[in-house]
Nucleic acid binder design. Structure first.
Lengths: 345, 345
DNA sequence: CCGCGTAATGTTTGCGTAAACATTGCCGGC
DNA sequence: GCCGGCAATGTTTACGCAAACATTACGCGG
């Protein structure tokens, strides 16, 4: 259907420029520019000619020149530690889709490690990067020390942080999610609820733990000692082994689904039946959660919404060249499956 | 320590350019350029002055101008359907890290849907994108119809495809992985092995299924009818319900870990014990697999290596402006856990 | 039928950088 | 002591695009 075979295209050492198109179409390069950018004031017949010439030569605007001229790159940078967590990868995916719809590309800036060095490296690179705005998916305090290296004028939106007083923050409503989880367990009749938290550096983890503690205190229930995990199923498993040994423990709220998975295995191995002997609630609602044994009751996060709101916020800021501190919370929803039940009398 | 507070930076409507630095340092802008690019021929004292001026003004090279001048963007595009699968997100992460080390940024190009329309949209965007090369993580035949829109001169490397005759292909050694899985089950004494495959469009899925069939045939074993899944645990669950009803079925090889998870749940619900009654092997070795009930025997993929090799390949091609057809396979390794055992006599 | 207004198109210019070429100044060999 | 040569630095130019300004041409009212 088309005239050339796919791969063995020889690069014409220098690309096709507007001048080439203009020459072929017999117009000035400015007219080509007008057609290319969709500006008005080009009569139909001329436009046709130009489009034909573009097609024939395989013209493609040079985005570097365009960016240089316009002073904007139409690109958003996304910084994060890892794509390995469901939350991050799903959020990034949503960001990428919505940015694409708006005509923006996204550039990934992975930070090797949460150390000062890793951060510095990443932000030095970032500083030289061609981005109009940045979405930071991490505790932003880590950023403070290195902010000076952000590209001049680049706007920042943050996920997983409490810096709503200084940045635009978009996040899942962690506290409400945790509240729903704990309330659900208490409503089922459990005396209290144990908690398995995420790594210390995560704001989401901390927020979930705070909310858990608050509800229990509010309800006048004893607050068991918190267990510390690192988001991994493995860490959930280890915590579960300990918890399984405590006959008092009839309900556990894990700060994410993967740790809940580890919990389920530990309880299974120790002969504590879920949900008969122990109830387990997770957080995230990863697709797999419905296939755990038993299917996991968990707090659903709307990562797509988080991504969409992030993009909208950065774009707004880029367009107005303003910073809009404030926090937008995305609601959560408890999904009740088979891992929770009333305690045995 | 630094002189300014993080967020409320007013964008100096026009950035600091080499000319500004040159003026302050009392040199020509070309000398600034030389310092900035690390070229030789600038004497120590001059260099110091320039660096000081840069620092004072907060100079940052304008990457658009640089790209325009040099004719390269130092950016690699990555096309994929979704980040939701472990394989994709892990591969992308590895790609991003290695590219960063080489001074290249990564631009994500998500393709909404595997339809002609979705592809066209993505590649039209891609065509205008500022990239020197592209890594395509999908069956590349989908690409053929639209290849003409790739940026001129951009080099392509492909994952999950058999187009090694036309493109550089980097992939996990799917066939060998499947072979190890099936061999393991046969060696344990199972008469034959059932297979749960991934979606039809995936080359990886197809390759695993082909290898499975080949080994069985080679060993003179009956080849059970293949079950079709879509990578999701849910689809594994449905397949599992059917398989559980067949008392002949004592060993299943699932094309990925998530479907294996669904299998485990189905067998559990139907009272078929794993591994006593049925053995299950997965593929991927996602971190959670070790915490399934029971811990899953699976084929470990080295996504980091895939990502690294992709980056090396594109960079090589970008630098030499050549296409190097050929396939590089990354070895796999069977990780034996608790979901496999000899069949009951 | 002249002149003015407006729509269509052309020309000039500059964005920030870095290659290519030009200039300066200093050192050493004869 | 003069000049060749080279190292350090300066000047010019072009990369491709698009805004700003300039020009053409055509139509219509007076």
């Amino acid at each position: 259907m088309t005239q050339q075979k796919p791969p063995p295209r020889q690069r014409p050492k220098r690309g096709v420029s507007m001048a080439d198109v203009a020459r072929l179409a017999g117009v000035s390069s400015q007219t080509v520019s007008r057609v290319s950018t969709g500006h008005p004031g080009v009569v139909g017949s001329t436009r046709e000619q130009v489009l034909a010439a573009m097609k024939q030569l395989g013209y493609r605007p040079n985005s570097a020149a365009r960016a240089l001229k316009r002073g904007e790159f139409r690109t958003i940078g996304v910084t994060l530690f890892t794509l390995a967590t469901t939350g991050n990868s799903r959020t990034v995916e949503a960001i990428a889709s919505h940015a694409a719809e708006e005509g923006y590309a996204i550039t990934l800036i992975p930070v090797a490690s949460p150390t000062q060095d890793g951060l510095l490296g990443a932000f030095t690179r970032l500083g030289e990067l061609a981005v109009d705005g940045v979405i930071v998916i991490m505790e932003v305090h880590l950023l403070d020390a290195v902010t000076v290296t952000l590209p001049p004028g680049a706007q920042v939106v943050v996920v997983d942080s409490d810096a709503g007083d200084r940045y635009t923050v978009v996040d899942t409503d962690q506290a409400d999610g945790a509240r729903q989880a704990v309330r659900h367990l208490l409503d089922l009749g459990h005396r209290t609820v144990w908690h398995l938290t995420g790594p210390a550096g995560s704001f989401a983890s901390q927020r979930r733990a705070d909310a858990w503690r608050a509800i229990l205190t509010e309800a006048g229930r004893p607050v068991p000692e918190v267990r510390h995990g690192d988001w991994s199923a493995e860490s959930g498993y280890h915590a579960g082994l300990e918890l399984a040994a405590d006959p008092e423990c009839t309900a556990v709220f894990a700060a994410n689904d993967q740790m809940a998975l580890g919990l389920l295995r530990a309880f299974h191995e120790r002969g504590r039946r879920v949900p008969d002997d122990v109830s387990v609630v997770g957080f995230d609602d990863i697709p797999d959660a419905a296939s755990f044994i038993p299917p996991l009751t968990t707090v659903h996060q709307d990562f797509a919404a988080v991504g969409r709101l992030c993009v909208q916020a950065v774009l707004r800021q880029i367009r107005h060249q303003t910073t809009e501190p404030g926090t937008t919370l995305v609601p959560t929803r408890l999904v009740v499956r088979a891992s929770t039940a009333p305690p045995r009398p």
